[in-house]
């Protein structure tokens, strides 16, 4: 059995999803892959929870999650919640934890920030690589803004970066690089934002205006309080840049993408589309000639990319395998954690 020590940097929806998956599947992963996953540190803005000798070499993820849930229900801050339930919190910041706490994989799960140079994610990843950690991340910002820089840093450090969780959530797409090894990927068209897909699906089904569908999505927790990044197409564009660089080998940047969001779509437009056998989807598209576009497109009802609800989907054209299609859940803590856990297992299986 090989021990794999993890630190989780950023303990929001995704970080907690990873802890949950480790709690649920640690024994199974040990049995099937010979890997003993241990969380040795959890760090967020409130401080750091570190495993002590008394913890037997790893934090108990169930205890941390329960503490946060119970404390949250009592109106306590995360730090108060943990301390109230016997988890010691240290005054340590993320770079210190990444550098000083001995571990194998840094799980970087802080929120995406494209406006601020991808920080703090970018620094977290570079620090981790320099300290000899592998990195697995769900954070789109650093990958979209500094793809080549990060890949080179990983190569220099002889470490791996897993970023399956940055695009399509649980839907496997980055790993198709390896699954389709030997193929050249010529073009990708995809639905990469579950919020937009939900809004367009509901507008079409219920003939409701954009604002109503958005509000419904917010009430269901599908759209964020500030939905601009989703509905203006920014989130799709960021993911498209990652696909362009990772799967098509382009040197693409966010500014190269022509972006149109879905805010102008009306129920009347969806109705006219339907009368003519189409639905409207926000499609991200990249090809080898460097075309990078995010825009609402007419998709024939019978087309495989016509997937509803919050689903993500991508259609890849390759030179040998022809067309390959993937569909899956694009959002959610457990879904992102699924991609993160797969990345971690892949690093140690190879």
């Amino acid at each position: 059995m090989r021990e794999v020590k993890l630190s989780i940097v950023g303990f929001g929806v995704v970080g907690r999803g990873v802890a949950e998956v480790v709690a649920r599947k640690r024994a199974e992963i040990g049995e099937r892959f010979g890997l003993d996953l241990r969380i040795v540190a959890v760090v967020d803005l409130w401080g750091a929870a570190l495993a002590s000798d008394a913890d037997g070499g790893g934090l108990d993820p169930r205890r941390i999650l329960d503490a946060l849930q119970k404390g949250g229900a009592e109106g306590l801050s995360p730090r108060e919640s943990l301390e109230a339930h016997g988890v010691r919190v240290e005054e340590l910041q993320s770079p210190d934890v990444i550098q000083e706490v001995e571990h194998d994989v840094t799980v970087e799960a802080t929120p995406t920030n494209v406006d601020n140079d991808g920080e703090p994610g970018t620094s977290h990843i570079l620090t981790a690589l320099k300290a000899g950690r592998h990195v697995v991340t769900s954070n789109k910002g650093p990958l979209a803004l500094h793809f080549n820089k990060l890949m080179q840093a990983a190569k220099r450090a002889d470490r791996k970066i897993g970023f399956e969780a940055t695009v399509g959530g649980a839907m496997p797409i980055i790993s198709l690089r390896d699954t389709l090894a030997g193929n050249e990927i010529l073009c990708i068209k995809g639905i990469l934002n579950g919020t937009c897909n939900y809004i367009l699906t509901r507008m079409g089904e219920e003939n409701m205006p954009f604002e109503h569908a958005l509000r419904e999505a917010q009430e269901m927790g599908i759209a964020e309080a500030d939905p601009r990044s989703d509905v203006l197409g920014v989130d799709t564009a960021v993911k498209l840049v990652i696909l362009a660089n990772a799967l098509l080998g382009l040197d693409a940047a966010y500014k190269d993408v022509r972006v149109t969001g879905i805010t102008e779509i009306t129920p009347e437009a969806l109705s006219l589309a339907r009368d003519n056998g189409y639905v409207i989807k926000l499609i991200g598209e990249v090809d080898r000639d460097g075309k990078l576009e995010v825009a609402p497109k007419l998709v024939p009802e019978t087309h495989p990319l016509n997937v509803g609800g919050t689903l993500n989907a991508a259609l890849l054209k390759t030179d040998l395998a022809g067309e390959v299609m993937v569909v899956g859940r694009g959002a959610g803590g457990i879904e992102a954690a699924s991609a993160i856990i797969s990345d971690i297992i892949r690093i140690f299986k190879n």
Partner: peptide, 11 residues
């Protein structure tokens, strides 16, 4: 005015 074009099928 916003133009919504078909997703090209000749992928």
């Amino acid at each position: 005015i916003l133009v919504v074009r078909p997703i090209e099928d000749e992928l």
